[in-house]
Simulated scan of single mutants.
Amino acid sequence: MLVLGIESSCDETGVALYDTERGLLAHHLHTQMAMHAEYGGVVPELASRDHIRRLVPLTEGCLQEAGVGYGDIDAVAFTQGPGLGGALLAGSSYANALAFALDKPVIPVHHLEGHLLSPLLADDKPEFPFVALLVSGGHTQFMAVRGIGDYTLLGESVDDAAGEAFDKTAKLLGLPYPGGAKLSELARLGRADAFQFPRPMLHSHDLQMSFSGLKTAVLTAVEKVRAESGGNEIPEQTRNDICRAFQDAVADVLVAKSKKALLDTGFRTLVVAGGVGANWKLRDEFSRLTVQRPSANKKQSHPEEAVKVYFPPLAYCTDNGAMIAFAGAMRLHNRQEAGAFNVKPRWPLADIVQQG
């Protein structure tokens, strides 16, 4: 079965072709980063219009690369939500119109399910069950994943998502949009212990997280530096030091909460997905992740055991059509038709469990 995947939830237009027997055949992506950089953030109306311009050329590019035609497509999957309303409508209307013209089923896909399943596109893929850390610009949450459609929310950020905190902190430091990746790059040049920022909710005994206070701590530090220097400029090394301290704080929280999620579920596999999953610091920390499970004998303790940690390939960390095509292929048995304008800008991942 050949599935065409359409992703248009925010500022990237992704189109891909996934074959259930041959795997991923083609994957094309257009990012609107340069267009939105002029405004310092995503402009929803501009994003929607650009999706409309890109969808047909990207689709035709995928078909040409895969050596197939429109008539070979067996189903069309699209991101139904969550995301920007207008951007979602662009992808939804295109997917539904194309499916109608081809007389093929259309498969609505939850954007976060696409991210959650994206590590399965790699050659070395995880097996169910596993704990998934979805960490992106809009979401930071832990899910217990027992199979396709069998997801349980374990905890999430109560305010800013980790990726959002990265971008907002970068803006405080005067870094160009989108600043999260640049902040991570500068953190490599920062000195350890030059700044100490809080680890919010690190010891909350649950899997909830908060990054808004961390962002405020950075603001306080920046204002202090500027006051001491008598100007608005932040010395280059000081900026790098702040970047490192911020990134270290986020990583410490995510690692600690991941350990708790693994202990609470008893699972031995962790999947880290979403745009922030490309962060070098997180990948480094998680590559050495171990947990110490409790022993029935209080006088003895189990040795630390290594955790199997999986990331999606870097190309599939950000929003992309490949993850939507794959998730759609996994749900082909449902074949639920969607209305041409049926999108869900706000859509909890837990809501799709009953469809599994």
Rank of each mutant, 00 (worst) to 15 (best):
G114N: 08
G321M: 10
H110F: 06
G339I: 01
D19I: 04
L58C: 07
L25I: 11
A338D: 00
L262H: 00
A97W: 02
Y316V: 09
G149T: 01
H110V: 01
R49M: 08
L120F: 15
R244T: 01
V68K: 11
T318E: 10
L117C: 06
K298R: 12
K182C: 12
L154V: 07
H51P: 08
P105G: 03
P108F: 03
R346L: 10
L58K: 09
G155C: 06
P178L: 01
V106K: 10
D241N: 03
V253H: 10
L202N: 06
D248Y: 06
P178F: 03
G81I: 01
F166T: 03
E236D: 13
S92V: 08
R22W: 12
V109W: 01
L175G: 03
I73G: 04
F326P: 07
D160G: 10
G180Q: 12
P82K: 04
T140Y: 07
S287V: 11
A66R: 06
G23P: 00
E38V: 13
A75T: 08
V15I: 14
R49N: 11
W280D: 14
G91P: 02
A245K: 11
L88H: 01
I324F: 02
T216R: 12
Y39H: 15
A162T: 04
G231V: 06
I324E: 01
